[in-house]
Design a protein around this nucleic acid. Structure first.
Ligand SMILES: [Zn+2]
Ligand SMILES: [Zn+2]
Ligand SMILES: [Zn+2]
Ligand SMILES: [Zn+2]
Lengths: 199, 199
DNA sequence: TCGGTACAGAATGTACTA
DNA sequence: ATAGTACATTCTGTACCG
């Protein structure tokens, strides 16, 4: 049994997971993101030409989670691996971890393209993670906006009323969606599909 | 009801906790450290002139937890507060949070001083946290040593045998305790009590 | 009013299954 | 040999009690 080290965090490792020698914790981490985050993220980035992108509370949580809050170049080792999900996930991708279900994902994407005229590519999603160090710093405005939106939504979810953009305190001034969205994903260039939405 | 913000993380806050206007999450965070960490840490720093300081697995975990793995000056806000326990705890102390049970702690310290000739001061413990930015960076050697010690101990705890310094792979070369201990606490000056151990 | 405590949910990592 | 799953543990934050 060859003793080796995890290519992500440096812990002891023996096996290949998702194509890379890695420890169980990093495997699990990647699994969770594959299942939860990437799936969620895919929904998030699905573009419907006719509808605006609406971020709900969960979406915003995820956006905040996948983004490094330092400088996008956090060292990942056995101690620090828990500190920054963004950089850990980035490193997973950088060392070559591949989604096993990539084909399945693409199949689903195809279905969505056909049925809903949505457009998304997995590479686009991965870029969000890979370009951590190009994201702008979390400004005070973003934080305030984020918290305000979260508060509003949790209050309205208690009362059971769904928050419409107009009922939001931001409704009249600014679009409650796009400022925070743009800032959070930073340099990601969203490609709006033209016409049929395929390429 | 005065709406205010948590002096630690900036979240909405209404009450004083441990002497500082703070949110519930920061209160809970501080409570946990008061209960678990500071107590544990107090044991850790108790100095017995006759016995060497022995760090077990739990102790090492705590040492790693209270230490910033960045530069000791992490910004703490509602998003980042979970990233760095060391800097969050430091900020709690910096904004003035006080242990409510300080007198009880001191009473216990007094008892230990009398009964066991131990020496410890709460201020000393707080300094460990406060001086985050003076701690040396986590070197590769420290990480390797840390992981090796953790592995050794978990193996030996499986077999049920208590690891003696001589059975350690480091036993013959270096003291398995003090190198990592010194590096982890960094600039903390341990004051070995002279004679009766009081001052 | 606020500290203590209990609980719920999320995140992490390990063990087991196939 | 490795992906999926279940479980245990820890961490975080909220609700309630006194
Ligand atoms: Zn790893
Ligand atoms: Zn990072
Ligand atoms: Zn706070
Ligand atoms: Zn820090």
């Amino acid at each position: 049994m060859p003793e080796d080290i995890c290519r992500v965090c440096g812990a002891n490792a023996e096996k290949y997971n998702y194509g890379v020698i890695s420890c169980n914790s990093c495997r699990n981490f990647f699994t969770n993101y594959q299942e939860e985050f990437l799936k969620k993220c895919r929904e998030l980035y699905l573009l419907d030409k006719t509808r605006p992108i609406v971020l709900d509370q969960d979406d915003r949580k995820i956006m905040m989670k996948i983004r490094c809050t330092y400088y996008g170049d956090c060292d990942i080792n056995v101690i620090t691996r828990r500190k920054c999900d963004g950089c850990r996930l980035k490193k997973c991708l950088d060392v070559g971890m591949k989604l096993k279900t990539k084909s399945e994902v693409n199949e689903e994407d195809d279905r969505l393209k056909r049925e809903k005229n949505y457009f998304v590519s997995l590479e686009m999603l991965e870029n969000v993670v890979r370009e951590q160090d190009e994201l702008p710093a979390l400004s005070q405005e973003i934080l305030s906006l984020h918290q305000k939106l979260m508060d509003e939504q949790s209050k309205s979810s208690q009362t059971g009323s769904f928050p419409s953009p107009s009922s939001s305190s931001f409704g009249s001034q600014i679009n409650p969606i796009h400022p925070i969205y743009d800032q959070l994903v930073g340099s990601l260039q969203l490609e709006i599909p033209t016409e049929s939405g395929f390429r």
